[in-house]
Design a protein around this nucleic acid. Structure first.
Lengths: 220, 220
DNA sequence: CTAATAGTGTCTCTGAGACACTATCTA
DNA sequence: TAGATAGTGTCTCAGAGACACTATTAG
């Protein structure tokens, strides 16, 4: 076998929606390089784990998570992207509803925080590019898959669903047209339960029909 | 720095159109594992080259190529995909027009051959999955980008262009509707030259307006 | 009954797809 | 002039988007 001087890492772009904003999880680095700068969570792949497993492990090291969607994004392999040497980084997009994620109180007191995607601090490595790519992927899939599912609680109102689309696409949508379209796509169904504890007409709660990611043209 | 027992390789799915069929380049392996089986071209990344460079280098080792489109596809990292050990493979999609590719007479007499994608032999590793993925990517991009450019010569007729779409999508298209659509997309322009040497009405030759890949919604 | 949000239908315009004939060139 | 392929227009139908009012609940 040949000898190679390259390391393999994974990096996770973890998105969630908090207070009507799309936010991404960043951790403050406490080792060189880029010490004290913010970065997306990540780390080296273990010898006998798959890339998906590594991405999931890194995610759990930063957050207590009960449910998450993970998808490989792109692999960055420029020999100069890490000053320590040649590190190939396999990036992942992770989505989770706000309710199902909480940050770990790190034993090493590592700081981790969600930042709105339009108020990011200076980032280590090429992590700014990675987040940009993740956002583009998410925007793209929003229109031809049920990916919004992974940012919402099990049961949700149509208004909540529409809001997810508006936040990510960064434009307002017409309520009537939005509902017509969603209905035809046939990806959600009513639970016949109603919202409780609101001081106005309560909305019907819906849920997604499919647990995993599905592409919409399979339905049409 | 940590110590890792993982190697990084690149694999190229090289598509071209030959005799109205989409074909992929395969090489016969002459070393273990999978000795004497067909595989897509690939190899280990060098310490100081980027992944794109490695993909391009592997491609040139098999073919004399004057022009090629290269795009990263997906990274496969299951620890068991290679019996020799943990090899992370970054796969690439490569497209080239038939005229611009010729196979090298390998000094080590390595056999390399184009196979129609629906008549593939048994393949080494997970290369069947990689080719499947490459084909899906190509099909997808066909409808929302000018990717067909990279399978055609500089100047081409509308019939040739339509044929590329029909071959890859595996269905016949209506000539009038196809032309209306292409015209509106505004991605090709007539050269005002005509086809020569045909025994029927010669067609106008067109060329793509853009040299690199462009996505269509940027135009609408 | 007021405040607040849920929920719904119609019209217009544009794009997709079905479909058949005339034009131009070579031999 | 025969053979072969290039090149073109219309109609219908479906989906997208603009747009405003009524329904239901809590307090």
């Amino acid at each position: 076998m040949i000898k190679q001087n390259i390391l393999v890492a994974v990096d996770d772009v973890i998105f969630t929606i908090i207070n009507d904003k799309l936010e991404v999880l960043l951790v403050k680095r406490w080792v060189e390089p880029f010490k004290w700068q913010w970065a997306i969570p990540g780390g080296f792949v273990l010898d006998n784990e798959s890339l998906d497993e590594a991405a999931y492990r890194e995610l759990k090291e930063e957050t207590n998570i009960s449910d998450v969607y993970l998808e490989q994004l792109y692999t960055f392999g420029d020999p100069n992207r890490d000053p320590r040497g040649h590190v190939v980084a396999v990036s992942y997009l992770a989505l989770t509803p706000r309710e199902k994620v909480s940050l770990k109180a790190g034993s090493d007191a590592q700081e981790a925080k969600f930042f709105p995607i339009n108020k990011l601090p200076k980032l280590a490595f090429d992590h700014k590019d990675i987040i940009k790519l993740a956002l583009e992927r998410l925007r793209g899939k929003l229109t031809y898959s049920n990916i919004a599912k992974f940012l919402l609680p099990e049961k949700f109102t149509l208004t909540q669903l529409q809001k997810v689309y508006e936040i990510i696409l960064e434009r307002e949508l017409d309520t009537r047209n939005f509902r017509k379209k969603i209905e035809k796509l046939w990806i959600i169904e009513p639970t016949w339960e109603k919202e409780v504890g609101v001081n106005h007409r309560p909305a019907l709660l819906y849920k997604f029909k499919h647990d995993k990611l599905v592409y919409l043209h399979e339905f049409l």
